[in-house]
Deep mutational scan, measured.
Amino acid sequence: IRVFLPNKQRTVVNVRNGMSLHDCLMKALKVRGLQPECCAVFRLLHEHKGKKARLDWNTDAASLIGEELQV
């Protein structure tokens, strides 16, 4: 999953079965001084340019493999 972060940063996270978005993104956020409780995560909708859909931090990350997200 490719993730666009604040301050023009980005990362790619690996996903294993059973992991939530929170689990996958925790380290990437922590390294940058961010906390999931203070952030929202969105899936970028490529079929609708510029649109995005808000996701819950408990979403199964395996269902988002190959997607691009924005925090």
Rank of each mutant, 00 (worst) to 15 (best):
R43N: 00
W57G: 01
V3N: 05
L29E: 00
R10P: 08
M26C: 14
E68P: 02
V13R: 01
Q35C: 10
T59C: 13
M26A: 15
L29Q: 00
L34Y: 08
G50Y: 12
E68F: 04
L34M: 12
V41W: 01
T59S: 07
L5C: 02
W57F: 03
L64N: 02
V41K: 02
F4H: 08
V31Y: 07
K51D: 15
D60V: 01
S20P: 03
R16W: 08
V12F: 09
L21M: 01
F42A: 05
P36Y: 10
K52R: 11
H22A: 14
V31H: 08
L25H: 05
K51R: 12
N7V: 01
Q35N: 11
D23M: 05
C39A: 03
G33Q: 01
F4K: 09
I65V: 13
A40K: 12
V31S: 14
N17F: 06
M19L: 09
P6Q: 00
E68A: 08
T59Q: 13
S20R: 08
G50F: 06
A61N: 04
N58C: 07
Q35G: 08
R54K: 11
K49T: 12
L25K: 03
D60S: 10
L55Q: 02
I1V: 03
Q9Y: 02
A61H: 03
L25P: 07
N58G: 11
L25F: 07
Q35Y: 09
V15K: 03
K8E: 12
H48S: 13
L25Q: 01
G33E: 05
Q35F: 09
L44F: 10
L25R: 01
R10Q: 15
F42S: 04
P36K: 07
V41M: 05
T59D: 09
Q9M: 06
F4S: 11
E68D: 10
S63V: 05
N14F: 08
I1T: 09
L21G: 01
N14A: 14
L34C: 03
L69P: 06
K27T: 12
P6L: 05
K52L: 14
T59G: 01
N17Y: 13
L55P: 00
F4A: 08
C24A: 09
A40N: 14
R54V: 09
E67L: 05
A40L: 08
L25S: 03
L69T: 01
C38D: 15
D56N: 10
L34D: 09
E37S: 12
R54L: 12
V12L: 07
N17D: 15
S20Q: 02
K52V: 13
R2M: 13
V15N: 04
L69Y: 03
K30A: 12
M26Y: 15
G66R: 04
L21P: 01
N58I: 06
E68L: 06
K51L: 12
S63G: 10
Q9G: 08
R16N: 12
V41F: 02
G66N: 06
N7S: 07
L5F: 12
H48V: 12
V3E: 00
G18K: 10
C24R: 12
S20Y: 07
M26R: 14
D60T: 05
V12T: 11
Q9R: 04
C38S: 14
V13L: 05
K27R: 11
F4D: 09
L55H: 04
E68V: 12
L34A: 01
H22T: 04
G18S: 05
G50P: 10
M19C: 07
L45Y: 11
G18Q: 06
H48E: 14
T59L: 08
T11N: 03
R16D: 09
K27H: 15
L55Y: 02
Q70S: 11
H46W: 04
G18A: 02
L45N: 15
Q9P: 03
A28N: 04
D60F: 06
H22L: 12
T11Q: 06
V31K: 11
K51Q: 14
K51V: 11
I65F: 02
K8F: 02
F42Y: 14
I1W: 00
V12Q: 10
F42L: 03
A28I: 07
D23C: 04
M26K: 14
A28S: 10
Q35I: 08
D60H: 10
K27Y: 08
L21E: 06
E67R: 03
R10Y: 15
H46G: 14
V71S: 00
L44E: 08
L45D: 11
V3Y: 05
L34V: 04
L44K: 12
V12S: 11
M19W: 08
R2N: 12
K8W: 01
P36W: 10
R43L: 09
E37T: 06
K52N: 13
R10N: 11
H46S: 14
R2F: 08
M26I: 13
L64Y: 07
M19H: 03
I65N: 14
